[in-house]
């Protein structure tokens, strides 16, 4: 389990440095696989059936469906690269590191001595790193990946609290995610058609 958390954090840090969209989606896919694994491991440890179900849903939606959509979009977006991010890759990695420290500090303050300290801290760090990625990156696809990373963080948070979230809540979150990614995918494509680019800073023009 700890290994999975370390891997999750590593992939998240890796993502802060990636500018190629295909790689970013690949990393997200890898992360989703880890999350699904974590879900199944916990299910194995506790013997609760709904963890298996949740893991299965993760595989279907986050490992298969969402990456499929994203890959399809990326394939259509030729000549799109992340340039001129708000922060350089080094700085954004540094910000992610700061965030991780903040997350640990928060967990130690709020829940001192909790068993799943690492998992909770990693979950919060993932949420914040996802938010950072959305903020720093200009490319729409990378922002979608950031959103998914956030969702992975939330899911991890749900796993690491005692007994996990009720299945109905997780189902709701999955459905939310599915719709969000579908809509965002369509919007990204429209953006490409309208502005000939998926650089979201162009949306500034919409301001009255």
């Amino acid at each position: 389990m700890n290994l999975l958390i370390i891997l999750l954090m590593t992939t998240a840090f890796f993502l802060t440095r990636v500018t190629n969209m295909r790689t970013a989606v690949g990393i997200f896919l890898a992360q989703s696989v880890m999350i699904a694994l974590a879900s199944i491991i916990i299910g194995f440890e506790t013997g609760e059936v709904h963890y298996y179900l949740a893991g299965l849903l993760t595989v279907v939606i986050k490992v298969a469906f969402i990456p499929y959509i994203l890959f399809k979009i990326v394939k259509r977006l030729k000549n799109e690269r992340e340039t001129n991010s708000l922060l350089s890759p080094n700085l954004s990695s540094l910000a992610a590191a700061g965030t991780t420290v903040l997350a640990y500090g928060f967990i130690d303050q709020a829940l001192p001595g909790v068993i799943s300290r690492d998992a909770l801290a990693a979950a919060i760090a993932l949420v914040l790193i996802g938010l950072q990625i959305i903020m720093i990156r200009r490319q729409a696809v990378l922002q979608i990946v950031g959103l998914n990373i956030m969702e992975n963080g939330l899911y991890l948070l749900g796993l690491s609290v005692t007994n996990g979230l009720p299945l109905i809540l997780e189902l709701g979150i999955f459905f939310d995610m599915l719709v969000a990614v579908a809509v965002l995918g369509i919007l990204t494509y429209r953006l490409k058609i309208s502005y000939a680019s998926t650089d979201t800073t162009l949306l500034r023009k919409l301001k009255g």
């Binding site: 708000l86 903040l102 938010l131 903020m135 979201t200 023009k205």
Partner: peptide, 26 residues
């Protein structure tokens, strides 16, 4: 505040989240 800059809006969300986290763990 309404710069139309997408990243800035997300930044607001981030700032609020961080502040809320720090506030709640005081």
């Amino acid at each position: 505040l309404q710069s139309g800059h997408l990243q800035l809006y997300i930044g607001y969300v981030l700032a609020v989240t961080v502040v809320a986290l720090i506030w709640s763990s005081r």
